[in-house]
Design a protein around this nucleic acid. Structure first.
Ligand SMILES: [Fe+2]
Ligand SMILES: [Fe+2]
Ligand SMILES: [Fe+2]
Ligand SMILES: [Fe+2]
Lengths: 214, 214
DNA sequence: ATTGGGGTTTCGGTGCGCCTAAATTCTGGC
DNA sequence: GCCAGAATTTAGGCGCACCGAAACCCCAAT
């Protein structure tokens, strides 16, 4: 229906991302920070998205996606994650190098090419960071997860996903051989013991990026 | 040096394309037609490109690329053709379906991804339409070619390239199994005899799109 | 040598996405 | 309950890429 330009797609995606692993709604200022734009720019785009029926917004209040908006948002996230998976799986990228490229391609690839990539990859359910890849109908399979920083000492779990917001965290974890699927026990705050008995100290930034099974 | 936005890249590419198989310079109005924009839009962009040192232009005169401009243009053409080759070679596209997708992706893919694609394809020299793929340094290997419409009757030759400007021509030729490399003799105007003795009638539009060995 | 018409440029204006600075509104701490 | 400070919106503007209409230039035919 609506045109949904590349910039608008990024707004929708970011609004969606905020509620993917949390429950509270995003505020305009938080959105501005995430997108790296001025608050007034957010106000403007919010007006357009609300007029298109993609988000709801009461003046001075937080933002929420409508069903139509969520569908658009998950479509962009689907593209982003399939592209990341493809870059790692077929094009020789490391998982800490794919985000920026996907950030651009997610707005330019056609549906046809996306599905060709999807088929080549064997219809993957997760991207290289462990994030679920939304289905074409917007469905997202998301297991209960806890932030490692919030887990209680003694917790035995597996890494579910690692936010790719901070590339240095990804490089740090890759060097420590920690990734989605890694099993561990939290022996002390910021200290995990791996299956082979080796222990690792993770930085606070990493602990705030790693989501583990509940 | 200069930023070179997506729109500017299309201008440069189109200026370059005009002289790739012909010798005369392109005029602003011809450029406007090719790009589907108003003449006044061309005037504006021409001013910017000339200011950036990418083209030369005397008021009311034709356009010519500078060395810097040609390098930029061939870089875009390289991207376009490598992407087309990749879409056909790996992603299951037919050669008459790749142009539009490449038209967009040529502006968004990173150098790194482009080279990964190039390596996967084995560093091809030609795209699916027979167009030479410029090297990274801007070098283009271009054999002498004649338009089929201009060839003399009795001419024995091979198809070198087929312009992908008109998708219906591409579909028509694909149905007739005519493509780059096809050997034939021009037995009469618009009539060619293939190596296996079969003859084919080509439309005037096709004859104006097919370039053959001299 | 003139002149007309087509090509080109200029001019004023649009939409988009962004900005800063200046209101305005909301709210939590007193 | 009030009010300062933070969040949000409004107002005014910018660069980009485009447009149509009007002015302008140039050459080719007379
Ligand atoms: Fe990402
Ligand atoms: Fe993006
Ligand atoms: Fe093409
Ligand atoms: Fe293009």
């Amino acid at each position: 229906m609506t045109h949904t330009t590349g910039a608008a797609e990024d707004y929708l995606k970011t609004i969606y991302a905020h509620t993917e692993w949390q429950t509270d709604l995003i505020t305009p200022s938080a959105l501005a920070v995430r997108l790296g734009v001025a608050p007034s720019s957010v106000t403007e785009m919010v007006k357009k998205l609300a007029a298109s029926g993609l988000i709801t917004h009461v003046p001075y209040g937080p933002l929420a996606l409508t069903d139509a908006g969520r569908l658009r948002a998950t479509a962009v996230v689907r593209r982003h994650r399939l592209i990341e998976t493809w870059l790692v799986g077929e094009m020789g990228y490391d998982w800490d190098q794919v985000h920026d490229e996907a950030e651009i391609l997610e707005h330019s690839i056609s549906d046809r090419l996306l599905e060709a990539i999807n088929a080549r990859l064997g219809f993957p359910a997760h991207d290289p960071h462990g994030d679920p890849i939304p289905a074409a109908d917007g469905t997202v399979l998301r297991p209960p997860a806890v932030l490692l920083a919030d887990a209680t000492v003694g917790h035995r779990a597996a890494v579910l996903r690692i936010s790719d917001r901070d590339p240095s965290v990804l490089r740090e974890l890759a060097a420590d051989l920690i990734g989605p699927g890694t099993e561990f026990t939290l022996s002390a705050p910021l200290t995990i013991v791996l299956a082979d008995g080796q222990s690792r100290l993770v930085t606070p930034a990493a602990a705030a990026s790693i989501w583990v099974t509940a």
